[in-house]
């Protein structure tokens, strides 16, 4: 209902969303390792391409493109710096291998961004919270995580209401110099803090009333179970790692320049 809708999560079902977040995390690590092991453009390009089916299966292409666009500035920076350093160290001229090398470094960064964004775009916070609960992380931590996800949008909306209430009493947030502007926010911050304290008290009261802390041996409504998809992903991970090690050790990797 408001500007803060983006902060709110929604449950989405897709073969990728339904995967066990723990396995997905291992997958991110595997891609990470592979991307570090290779420094040539061709294998890194392949690592980039093999992830695209995941993105398409999860139907998050639009968000995924947005995150890549977000990384574009840093990627350009990495490319320019790499080209520049080789330019200065190799006696002031551009060579094809140097540029290819810079492109590979940039590609490595893009692959990392890609795999992390696939993970976060396809893992809902409640799934992540559950994974935390099922791991050896203390329950209080997992609870704090999910509660934060639950209440961040609520607080954001409340901040908007408070700003509206004070603007209706003639407060002009954008008026004055920098110091005055900071002071303008006092009438917004105090009610926000007071209300957050009140809210947390009410939350604590509700938790107490529902037997919070009754036993150390908590149970859980959900259980993370491995499904077919998860086993398939495990197979893919193992495949990627074996291929990575084999290729790195025994296969001479051509450069693009060598094709010409």
């Amino acid at each position: 209902m408001s500007v803060f809708d983006g902060l709110r999560f929604r449950k989405v079902h897709s073969p990728i969303h339904n995967l066990d977040p723990r396995i997905k995390f291992v997958y991110v690590i595997a891609i990470f390792v592979a991307a570090i092991i290779f420094y040539q453009i061709i294998p890194l390009l392949i690592l980039f391409l093999i992830q695209i089916p995941f993105v398409l299966l999860a139907r998050v292409q639009r968000q995924w493109l947005r995150s890549l666009r977000g990384a574009a500035f840093l990627a350009t920076f990495i490319f320019v710096v790499n080209v520049a350093t080789t330019f200065f160290t190799s006696g002031y001229h551009f060579t094809a291998p140097n540029i290819e090398n810079a492109a590979a470094m940039t590609m490595r960064f893009v692959v990392l961004v890609e795999s992390f964004s696939v993970f976060f775009l396809t893992t809902s916070p409640d799934h992540l919270g559950l994974a935390l609960e099922e791991s050896r992380v203390p329950y209080e931590f997992a609870f704090a995580f999910t509660t934060a996800v639950r209440f961040v949008p609520v607080l954001a909306e409340e901040a908007q209401t408070i700003m509206d209430a004070q603007k209706a009493r003639g407060l002009e947030l954008e008026k004055g110099g920098i110091l005055k502007r900071i002071r303008n926010y006092v009438p917004v911050l105090i009610p926000l803090i007071v209300s957050a304290i009140r809210r947390s008290l009410e939350l604590a009261e509700a938790m107490e009333s529902r037997a919070w802390g009754a036993t150390k041996k908590r149970t859980n409504l959900y259980a993370l179970k491995l499904h077919k998809g998860d086993y398939a992903l495990v197979a893919i991970i193992v495949g990627i790692l074996i291929a990575t090690v084999y290729i790195r050790l025994y296969v001479p990797i051509p450069t693009i320049a060598s094709f010409f």
């Binding site: 409640d126 919070w212 908590r218 149970t219």
Partner: peptide
């Protein structure tokens, strides 16, 4: 608003039972 803290409804309904270890 201040007595629901889970991210799904059934998880919230289960909260008390989880706490007592059912």
């Amino acid at each position: 608003e201040n007595q629901l803290f889970a991210l799904s409804i059934e998880k919230d309904v289960a909260f008390g039972l989880e706490n007592v270890g059912v």
